[in-house]
């Protein structure tokens, strides 16, 4: 027996049709239809017009900037995020609970607040900007500032994906390695690291995806100078302010396609990571 386009669900619990129906309705209304508006609008452009818009030098420069700063920020977060997760899981020190909670600050803090705070701190007269300027390093209003902001925004991702894996790591595995003569470093390198690697990669990808689309925390600390420190989301806003809806949408579509591909990659990675953890818990 089939019910409409769905095969009968394997469960006798009630409420399936209503729950699924409402879910799909709300999803379409809020997410799917609005998102499709971007693609449909783009189709009103000719291919040449679309292509010229999304490959204009200024736009290309913004892709390159956004891409490399996001990648670098995600890498930094991968390395240090693993470190932070390690420290939080394996060591005890005063204030650990508080620090653990604060790791989620980038999730909870509005991006605009983060933006002005980071600018204040890293400007040439700021707490950290001043000593750095004396060393000849200018952070605010340069691509370096963008890097700082994107590192902030992606900080929790790697930590939070790695922590559960480290917590579930069986002590006996390490003890076995040690009893077989492995040094601490060898144990880490050969036993622990391979186990947490999928989680690190997942966290890295999540941080990268988030950084690509970030706006609020970046625009205050970036210089927003075209061709130098202008991120792609800002280009979209600029075009909107000039009422160039088609142009803004064209660039948006490029970003959407990139994020969808990343989303696919993330889901595949998470599935792989979960599979590996399931195998290891046998």
């Amino acid at each position: 027996m089939t019910t409409g386009i769905f095969t009968r669900p394997h469960s006798v619990l009630p409420g399936f049709n209503m729950a699924l129906g409402f879910t799909i309705f709300y999803l379409s209304l809020i997410v799917l239809i609005p998102l499709s508006a971007a693609f449909i609008k783009t189709f009103t452009l000719t291919w040449e017009a679309f292509w010229t818009t999304v490959t204009a030098p200024r736009v290309l420069a913004s892709y390159w900037l956004t891409l490399r700063t996001s990648l670098l920020a995600a890498l930094i977060n991968a390395v240090f995020g693993l470190l932070v997760a390690w420290v939080l899981v394996r060591y005890k020190f005063p204030g650990k609970r508080v620090i653990d909670a604060l790791v989620d600050l980038p999730f909870a803090l509005p991006t605009a607040v983060a933006g002005i705070a980071l600018t204040a701190v890293y400007a040439t007269n700021g707490w950290l900007g001043k000593p750095l300027a004396e060393m000849g390093v200018k952070v605010a209003f340069t691509p370096l500032g963008i890097l700082v902001a994107l590192t902030f925004i992606g900080l929790p991702f790697v930590v939070r994906t790695v922590q559960p894996v480290l917590e579930d790591l069986e002590k006996e595995m390490e003890e076995a390695a040690q009893s077989l003569g492995a040094s601490q470093w060898q144990t880490f390198q050969r036993v622990i690291f391979p186990t947490v690697l999928p989680a690190v990669v997942t966290g890295f990808t999540l941080a990268f995806a988030r950084a690509l689309g970030e706006y609020g925390s970046v625009i205050f600390i970036a210089g927003n100078m075209p061709m130098v420190s202008e991120i792609t989301p800002l280009i979209i806003i600029t075009k909107l302010e000039q009422y160039d809806y088609a142009g803004a949408t064209a660039v948006a579509v490029v970003m959407l396609v990139a994020s969808f591909l990343l989303l696919l990659a993330i889901n595949t990675l998470q599935w792989w990571s979960r599979k590996q953890r399931a195998q290891e818990s046998v």
Binding site: A38, G213, P233, I236, L263
Partner: peptide, 9 residues
């Protein structure tokens, strides 16, 4: 999906 879409978009 909304997680992966830039706020501006």
């Amino acid at each position: 999906l909304p997680f992966s879409v830039s706020p501006v978009i």
